[in-house]
Design a binder for these strands. Structure first.
Length: 472
RNA sequence: GCUGGGGUGGCCGAAUCGUUUAGGCGGUAGCCUGCAGAGCUGCUCUAUAUGGGUUCAAUUCCCAUCCCCAGCUCCA
């Protein structure tokens, strides 16, 4: 198979335009994605971001790039501290529980793990050293409370990402308690001086006793693992301002270099047409949905199937539709595995090439997943037509499975083969009995056994190539 | 208030200033099948929030209006 040759366009928040993606080092990509704050189970909105990032990463890998992916785990902030105190356990113990849950969740969603998952609490020295540089360069000052703040006015490019003009921010909204110690309202904390409410969450450092501000962890950990300038930084649109804007200010002031070349932000999702919130009763974690019996891969498909810069409306109707769509693909693969026809005289190969081209063109256009899926389903229909005519040879079927699996390396929604489930002897015997009944045309008995198997979760189908069964 | 993103068929969702405006899901009819399932084909599908304007041509550009969503200092 030829390697994807067309350029990959991505929408860069810095320029608000689609740009051809060109990595710093040929053939490799360094990307950083803002990870979860581990104070609770992640919700499906969080996972939309992680799935978008997974799609991006898988596509870069499909294109032949070696991707180094870093995702941080925010394990010290107001919420984690409050949570650990409410539970009466150490901060580390409290966050450790949700870190474990997070990894379980992303595994269920078939999200490829990052190469490194740095925790904020493991990188305080790196943060301190950046803050000291900022102090030395005059970008940071000490407030009356002993906290250290970043002086936004010292960084002329502040606002280049979010296109927010300092000074036009709504005055008086969501004023933080310590604001009076800052020189300017828009300044933000690099280091927070210890207060008794912080409990066991403090570090004794050259900056005094305290804990890091939120934004500094991403600057410190991304530069630690990816270098002072790297290729891609992703996150939810809400992180664009102030979080990412502040990261740029900190990192570029400290290093004197461009921090990140491409910034990508995904839009939020709504649930049943409304903002997801506990108040509306439409707030879902992955675990909530799994408890209701939904398939995590259907959730993956659904959250992935809408363009990442589009607000997405999550509905249960949509989730059911996603399940059916995946089932269609699985059925397609089952048919291919059984195929042993006379050959299509090149039609299959032609369809494969066409589908590959359409699929790649679509995703190369800023991850246009909808158009890519349309190409996939067009392909499925065309090949199904040939399968109906018994015109797909075993060799052609294998080639089709190969391209399907290539697409799937990007989508992550179907397995190459049915998961080999061990049948109990009882079920095996039932299948044998039905076959025997069918051979003697005892339709009534055969149908009755088929129904019985269905209640046991086994779907039996009769095809041109004989009987076939799979789990529901 | 300021800034930004949207409103496409029963539902979800692409694309595009001009031949038939993708694809999925759902419904329905037919083909196939002993039946079913899967699959295919047709129909649902004279779908582009509303009202104007520009143009040979707009759903796509412009203006106005209505509605939804987001950001505006630690929410993906």
């Amino acid at each position: 198979m030829t390697v994807n040759q067309t350029p990959f366009y991505i929408f860069n928040t810095l320029t608000r335009q689609k740009e051809v993606f060109t990595p710093i080092n040929q053939g490799e990509v360094k990307m950083y994605t803002c990870g979860p704050t581990v104070y609770d189970y992640a919700h499906i909105g969080n996972f939309r971001a992680f799935l978008f990032e997974d799609l991006l990463k898988r596509w870069l890998q499909y294109c032949g790039f070696k991707v180094t992916h870093v995702m941080n785990l925010t394990d010290v902030d107001d919420k984690t501290i409050r949570g650990s105190q409410t539970k009466g356990v150490a901060l580390r113990q409290y966050t450790g529980f949700f870190v474990k849950a997070f990894f379980e969740d992303i595994a269920k969603l078939n999200i490829e793990p990052a190469d490194v998952y740095p925790c904020a609490t493991d990188h305080v020295p790196e943060m301190v050293s950046i803050i000291k540089i900022l102090q030395a360069k005059g970008f940071a000052y000490c407030g009356e409370d002993g906290s250290i703040y970043y002086a936004v006015s010292k960084f002329p490019k502040y606002g280049k990402l979010s296109h927010i003009k300092v000074g036009e921010l709504k005055a008086g909204a969501r004023v933080s308690q310590d604001e009076y110690t800052k020189d300017d309202a828009q300044d933000f904390a690099l280091w927070k001086a210890y207060t008794p409410e912080d409990g066991d969450a403090f570090w004794e450092t050259d900056l005094g006793k305290g804990r890091p501000g939120w934004h500094i962890e991403c600057s410190a950990m991304s530069m630690r693992y990816l270098g002072e300038t790297f290729d891609i930084h992703c996150g939810g649109i809400d992180n664009m301002f102030p979080h990412h804007e502040n990261e740029i200010a900190q990192s570029e002031a400290a290093s004197g270099k461009v921090f990140v070349n491409y910034w990508l932000h995904n839009e939020h999702l709504q649930v049943e047409g409304k903002k997801m919130s506990k108040r509306f009763g439409n707030f879902y974690t992955l675990r909530d949905l799994l408890e209701r019996g939904y398939d995590p891969i259907a959730i993956r498909y659904l959250l992935l199937s809408t363009h990442y810069r589009q607000q997405f409306n999550f509905t249960f109707e949509g989730l059911n539709a996603a399940k059916s769509a995946i089932e269609r693909l699985k059925n397609f693969r089952r048919r291919l595995q059984d195929a042993d026809g006379r050959g299509s005289e090149g039609k299959v190969v032609m369809q494969i090439q066409h589908a590959k081209q359409c699929f790649e063109e679509a995703i190369n256009d800023d991850l246009n997943i909808s158009t890519a899926l349309a190409a996939l389903f067009d392909f499925v229909r065309e090949i199904n037509n040939l399968l109906d005519a018994n015109a797909v040879s075993k060799e052609e079927a294998n080639q089709t499975i190969e391209i399907l699996m290539q697409f799937n390396s990007v989508l992550g929604i179907i397995d190459r083969e049915e998961k080999k489930e061990n049948l109990t002897n009882d079920i095996y015997a039932l299948i044998q009995r039905r076959e025997a009944a069918r051979r003697t045309k005892s339709w009534k008995e055969a149908d009755q056994i088929r129904d019985q198997l269905k209640t046991l979760g086994i779907i039996v189908e009769d095809t041109a190539q004989g009987m076939r069964w799979h789990k529901e």
